[in-house]
Amino acid sequence: MNKKKLAFLILWLLLFFLCAYFLYNSYTLLIEYRDRRQGIIQLVCGLCLVISILSVAYLSEKPLSSWKEKAMIVFSDLCLFESILVFFGRYQDTGVLLLIIITAFIVSVLVSFLIIRHFNKADKI
C-alpha cells in the first residue's frame, strides 16, 4: 500500500467516525438532553457527511464522464463543506449560521468546478 492510499484510507476512516460522532451526539442531544437546536445542527452535519461519503463511494465505481457524475461531485463537496462549517458555527446565531451555509455552498461549487476541470484535462491527455 503506497503512502497516497494510506493517507486516503485514514482520511476516509476519519470521515466515517466524524459522521458517526455527529449522528450519535444528535441522538443524545435530541432525546436525552432535549436541546433541539444543537441536536438538529449535529443531525444536519451527520446527514451531510453521510451523503458526501455515499456520493464518493458511488463515484469511485463509475468513470467521470456524464453530467450526472459531475453533479454528484458538486453535491458531495457541498455536503462536506456544509457539514464542517455548520459544525464550527453551531453556537452562532441563526443569521450567522445561514451566512455560513451560503458560504459553504459557494466554496463547494468553486472546489467542484476545479475538480471537474482537473479530471477533464486528465481525460483529454
Binding site: F16, C19, V50, I53, L54, Y58, S60, E61
Partner: peptide, 13 residues
C-alpha cells in the same frame, strides 16, 4: 462500495 460504506458507517456509529 456504497453498501460497504453504509456497513462501515453503522459500525462507526
Amino acid at each position: 462500495r456504497v453498501g460497504l460504506a453504509l456497513i462501515c458507517l453503522m459500525f462507526a456509529i
